[in-house]
Nucleic acid binder design. Structure first.
Length: 511
DNA sequence: CGCCTTTGACCTGCGC
DNA sequence: GCGCAGGTCAAAGGCG
């Protein structure tokens, strides 16, 4: 009985898996009517999560069978064997009766596994090819954007940049390709400037901002100083030194800030990280003070955030993140980090800032296909800033507030799964977060994160659970491999239960 | 005792 | 050069 029961449960899990992975052909439709057992192993091939489910439901069996979890790592053949041997409660008589059929089923399982593996390999190969093509296209786009930006800087009226440019999250990354591992430290921060309180989404590009700000000749090469230039140009030398040591490689994105606007009565948004308040200032034009927080989850963590209530609507909490965590993050923090990283990655490569602070470049998207979050260019902010407006529900109609002075466009976070899976957005010491490695639905995760935060900023626990549900356990191989160039190494780390990645993910920011 | 918050002072960039 | 504003430091005090 246990054996049959397990089969049924496993089959259901596999079903769920198929629902969550539409790309995987539903091979069970062909065989389900005939055999139930074969699905057990096939399901196990792709998801360790479901294996764990089995373990949960059959702890008794597992107690006397050490192979219960090992099947996750082993080949499909082993899984099949494990299943047969993992039912100590089955009587000898039952085994004899099913022995012949079981062997045949086992063979079928093996064959099915081989087919699925080949299919998965093919899918992975296709995905990688597409990813490579996309990367090349983005590079071309970046070059094109550079020329356009030069024209704009030369006084050309072409302030309006192509939609693709702003929609292209990789543009900046591509442009920064020469930078030494600059990707590590995507900056996240909450923009608390009053101007942005009315903005749905603002984006500025680091490059242009640096070039356009007098006295801030921060080139992309001196990334080590960018942290201090951005957050604390007035910082003490000691702090700068430490930052140089810790963040020397994160320069490129250090200029970017990610601002999250969310409705919350709480003084802080629970983002899963530990923060220490190190300062508070009254910002001009806003009766609410601006608080400065520093991540204290690890010594020397460069991540900081500003928290300030919107001057127009005090129920809106504006949190600005900057920097990348240099330590493992809890799931909730990981989700936020990924979200903000993805947002930071959206920074266009060529937005410019006019001398008078007026928005000089912007892109407008008449149709808002992505209602959960939107982006808007803002030249008013001294730093490249992306503002994620979570004050609306995922399906809410954007622009409930009066249109901001700047143009806005939706943030197509889910349009760039490669961003989340790309190592460029992984922290230096944290190869890739489990979420990032879940290449299947990185964008959906972001959506889920933003939606959850929008609905309840303090609901991080549920957020983590939701992410876990959506993403499941890291795929054993192929699934994530398509998302990460460092798939091999990163993945190995991520699936280790004891590994820090198992409980965190990292991205850059968030805090 | 350690950690955190508070808060005034200080530093730096920027505009005039 | 001066003043303003943003950002940070660090001493003091509170809290568990």
């Amino acid at each position: 009985m246990e054996k049959r029961q397990r089969r049924e449960l496993t089959f259901m899990h596999y079903d769920d898996l198929l629902r969550q992975n539409p790309g995987v052909p539903d091979r069970t439709l062909d065989d389900s009517s005939d055999h139930v057992k074969p699905h057990i192993t096939e399901m196990d091939f792709f998801s360790t999560q479901y294996q764990s489910h089995d373990d949960d439901h059959y702890q008794e069996s597992k107690a006397s069978n050490n192979n219960g979890s090992s099947s996750i790592v082993d080949s499909s053949v082993n899984i099949g064997l494990n299943l047969l041997s993992s039912s100590p409660g089955v009587s000898r008589a039952a085994n004899d009766a099913e022995e012949g059929g079981a062997e045949m089923e086992l063979e079928k399982l093996k064959e099915e596994n081989r087919r699925l593996r080949s299919m998965l390999d093919q899918i992975t190969k296709n995905y990688n090819e597409l990813q490579g093509q996309l990367f090349m296209a983005l590079q071309k786009q970046a070059h094109r954007n550079q020329h356009e930006q030069k024209d704009a800087l030369n006084g050309m009226a072409g302030s309006i940049m192509s939609v693709q440019q702003f929609m292209d999250p990789r543009t900046s990354a591509v442009l920064d390709v020469n930078e030494p591992s600059g990707y590590d430290k995507t900056d996240q921060e909450v923009l608390a400037s009053p101007e942005n309180t009315t903005e749905v989404f603002s984006i500025e590009h680091n490059h242009r901002t640096c070039q356009s700000i007098p006295g801030k000749n921060v080139s992309m090469e001196d990334g080590a100083d960018q942290t201090s230039q951005r957050w604390g140009s007035h910082k003490s030398p000691k702090l700068d030194q430490s930052k140089n040591e810790d963040q020397g490689s994160e320069a490129p994105f250090r200029k970017a800030r990610v601002s999250v606007r969310a409705r919350s009565e709480a003084p802080l948004i629970s983002d899963g990280c530990q923060w220490r308040k190190y300062g508070q200032k009254m910002a001009k034009g806003n009766p609410c003070p601006r608080a400065y927080y520093r991540c204290t989850m690890a010594v020397g963590c460069p991540v900081r955030k500003q928290v300030q209530r919107c001057a127009d609507d005090k129920s809106i909490l504006i949190t600005t993140y900057e920097g990348n965590h240099n330590h493992p993050l809890p799931p909730a923090a990981t989700a936020m980090a990924n979200t903000t990283s993805a947002a930071a990655a959206m920074l266009p490569s060529g937005s410019t800032k006019s001398n008078d602070g007026a928005l000089s470049t912007s892109a407008y998207f008449p149709s808002l296909r992505y209602g959960s979050s939107m982006a808007m260019l803002s030249a008013s902010a001294p730093f490249p800033t992306i503002t994620l407006d979570l004050t609306h529900g995922p399906n809410a109609v954007p622009f409930l507030r009066p249109p901001p002075p700047t143009t806005s466009f939706p943030l197509p976070l889910h349009g760039y799964p490669q961003l989340l899976g790309n190592p460029m957005f992984a922290p230096p010491k944290l190869p890739t977060s489990p979420a990032m490695q879940l290449g299947q639905r990185p964008a959906s995760m972001v959506e889920t994160v933003t939606a959850a935060i929008a609905s309840d900023p303090n609901f991080t626990s549920a957020l983590a659970a939701a992410i876990s549900t959506i993403m499941g356990a890291p795929p054993r191989n192929n699934g994530n491999s398509t998302m990460n160039n460092d798939e091999n190494n990163d993945y190995d780390h991520s699936i280790k239960p004891g590994s820090p990645h198992a409980q965190q993910s990292c991205s850059n920011k968030p805090g």
